[in-house]
């Protein structure tokens, strides 16, 4: 069938991420125009290049500044705690679990986006797992007591404080020089994200316990979406289903390669090899992280999100990951 001629505007995710370079950007700038037989023309820009802050993206999408948008979902949690639901610290030790959690939570996110922000959810996908990068030796998770750790979210700060460390918030661009000068001992970011940003050149020890996955969303402005013809909606929905599969696949590859690249091993096609020392993650570390998640992170998030929200979480994500928010404590 031929699609109606349509011109769409996209604000893409952070420009230097590997999934943006390899999947998202080609998806918008090449595939969509080609597969629509040239009927769809796309203007594509990344939010960081446009000088937009992540936490503002949902409001810009709501205002109709772009037809389609993508960014980290946790950054929207200031406007509504619901958005953090499948990316809470410590609930998903591996990608299959993260996927189960997000599949279970997606309808809740979609409902909130539609009701509050005039935005349609078109998919959730992960970054490489967020792991620890340290200048000084660490043996296990308990070793972070007394250490200064750079974090990028409030729940991550809760975790570091519980471990007995001092959380520090520093802009991403300042992390490398700050690590170099020893402003903090450790920092947390994606296993491959840090590699391409040069963190592996200024830290020595990689502790590859993923604390969360920086889940990001794909979305459409609801008014724009409603104006599209049914064929166009169907075409785009099919494209997005395919896009999301590929985003989960490249995340798995990027996470694994992140660890191998940083420690100078193969395969390493997406990053650059570095000479970091791999610190083995033990079962007691996973147990401790899960305990912090259960006792601190979930309780505090439950308080922010409210009882109804927590109940819903227990019935969906909670079942998928085998955790539950103690409703009497919130």
């Amino acid at each position: 069938q031929t699609l109606p001629e349509t011109s769409i505007r996209v604000i893409g995710n952070f420009s230097s991420q590997v999934q943006v370079q390899k999947v998202e950007k080609p998806f918008w700038t090449q595939e969509i125009p080609a597969d629509s037989g040239g009927r769809i023309t796309v203007t594509y820009n990344n939010y960081d290049i446009m000088g937009i802050r992540e936490q503002q993206m949902i409001r810009l999408s709501e205002a109709g500044v772009a037809d389609f948008a993508s960014t980290d979902i946790v950054k929207l949690a200031g406007d509504d705690p619901v958005f953090e639901g499948c990316d809470l610290i410590g609930i998903a030790p591996d990608l299959p679990t993260a996927r189960k959690a997000c599949d279970a939570w997606a309808p809740v996110v979609a409902e909130a986006m539609e009701r509050k922000f005039q935005t349609k959810l078109l998919g959730l996908a992960p970054n490489p797992g967020l792991v620890f990068w340290c200048r000084s030796p660490v043996k296990n998770l308990a070793d972070f007591a007394g250490k200064k750790v750079r974090v990028n979210s409030r729940t991550m700060a809760d975790m570091v404080t519980t471990l007995g460390g001092t959380p520090i918030t520093t802009p991403f661009g300042e992390v490398v020089p700050s690590l170099q000068r020893g402003v903090f001992d450790c920092a947390i970011t994606g296993s491959l994200t840090g590699n391409t940003a040069g963190w592996s050149e200024v830290t020595k020890y990689l502790f590859p316990l993923p604390v969360n996955w920086s889940i990001y969303y794909q979305s459409a402005n609801l008014n724009s979406w409603k104006k599209y013809s049914p064929e166009l909606q169907k075409f785009l929905e099919a494209k997005f289903a395919d896009l999301n599969e590929r985003l989960w696949t490249i995340a798995a590859q990027a996470h694994a390669e992140g660890v191998s690249c940083n420690t100078g091993k193969d395969p390493c096609t997406l990053g650059k090899k570095a000479g970091m020392e791999l610190v083995a993650v033990g079962d007691e570390d996973r147990t401790l992280l899960r305990k912090i998640s259960q006792e601190v992170v979930l309780v505090q998030w439950g308080k922010r999100c409210g009882k109804a929200c927590a109940t819903k979480w227990n019935d969906t994500v909670g079942k998928a990951v085998g955790l539950s928010i103690p409703l009497d404590k919130i």
Partner: peptide, 21 residues
Amino acid sequence: SPMPLWFAFGELAWGTSAEFN
């Protein structure tokens, strides 16, 4: 621009005004 870009001005102006750097 086909889109109402100035809808974003409030958010952007606030973000820049409150930029710690």
